[in-house]
Design a protein around this nucleic acid. Structure first.
Lengths: 217, 217
DNA sequence: TAATTAGTCTAACAATCATTAGATTGTATG
DNA sequence: CATACAATCTAATGATTGTTAGACTAATTA
């Protein structure tokens, strides 16, 4: 049965291609960005703070692992997730990491300045309140990401425009801001800004990918 | 906001620790083995066909990623999964790989010599038939793995003993054999042996870890 | 106490991967 | 048709891993 060993080695090696694809921080960040919307290489490079060449190299790895696909439009090549399952997988990976790695737990805890309980924090009651208009769910990502997918009842004001568009938000109701997910810092920034301006602002850790999945586990 | 970049880099780097842990075929094989039962290093080394030193090194990586834990018992150090979620994660990873990687699909297809439809292939009807005794569900893994966890109604005959214990199996009812999962070749071997001996034998791809999860997706 | 067993730790080499620079390929624009 | 643009491909570098050998440790057995 030495033949069986060769077959097995081959099978695990194939699965490891997925593992290798997600073994680099920058590739994970690219996947999270692609969870929001399809994007051109240069956009991805800027949002992940790397050079276009490096982004291209990482995206190639992701494509070799069949996690992303491409589409050309004029001079641009747009990358997108190859499958909705890839978004679920990303959520599963980071949520496992949050479960297992104390360092990550601590870092996230430091970021979120204590989850304040003024706002419903389970999904159902948050949605109920949002439906009734008792809270404003605010999507602070770029508009194209909002247009690709957003949480139910969410309103779009990109972080960059928030300062000039404060008038659109009510001061008498709590505002719950979200962005790309727990590693994106746009919503925390938005919350800080809103609180400064006297709003009752709260942070929702989930993004659309997390929302589409059984909460946190 | 250059500060934000540093924080982000750190967060993704933490998640990438999980990715790195599963980026090696041998580590994946070790995880699958640990999905069956806790095991000593030497056992793991033998079952994965590697040296004890190499097994030790890989297990250390897994432990650094907090995916496994250890326990000393006399001269032996037993490794186990740190969390049930790790088993789910393994199933999720290999099932994603099976979805995305054509090479893996082809290899698995070649192995299973066409899924024959003589036996109920959805879980519910298989269990119904097993409960009534219409089919025999056969666990061909080592006994300790069977004792740790096994499918409902399953009977244990390890592959190595199967030839001498054929008398325990009925010839008038279909036998459905399973082992550690889709990459373990014990059940296929058992099925081949049983068919040779005139039994109506069928292969179940799932192992206990796969069974504990929403089927295949 | 010495020898054995089971496993880890350290150091070293080879193999792989990340990153960048330079040349190249398509596509659009003047 | 030439130029610019968006991105890839190739090649080269340095940094990480995988793997093995040899020394070491902790628990058991003689």
């Amino acid at each position: 049965m030495d033949n069986g060993r060769q077959i097995k080695d081959m099978l695990y090696e194939q699965v490891a291609r997925i593992g290798k694809a997600i073994s680099s921080p920058k590739r994970l960040e690219l996947i999270e960005l692609l969870c929001q919307a399809e994007k051109a290489v240069e956009t991805l490079a800027q949002e992940a703070s790397i050079s276009m060449k490096l982004a291209s190299a990482h995206l190639r790895e992701l494509r070799n692992a069949r996690l992303v696909d491409t589409r050309r439009e004029g001079k641009n090549i747009f990358y997108r997730l190859a499958d909705k399952r890839v978004a679920d997988f990303w959520v599963n990976v980071h949520s496992l990491a949050e479960d297992r790695l104390v360092e990550l737990q601590e870092a996230l805890h430091d970021l979120s300045l204590l989850p304040d309980e003024l706002v419903p924090n389970d999904r159902e009651s948050l949605m109920k309140a949002a439906r009734k208009g008792e809270v404003v769910v605010l999507d602070v990502r770029p508009v194209d990401e909002y247009l690709t997918a957003h949480l139910p009842f969410a309103r779009s004001i990109p972080l960059g425009e928030l300062k000039h568009r404060l008038a659109e938000l009510p001061k008498d109701r709590p505002i719950v801001a979200y962005c790309r997910g727990p590693y994106c810092l746009m919503a925390p920034d938005a919350v800080a800004l809103l609180k400064d301006e006297g709003y009752s602002a709260h942070l929702l850790r989930d993004g659309v990918a997390e929302w589409a999945r059984p909460s946190g586990n």
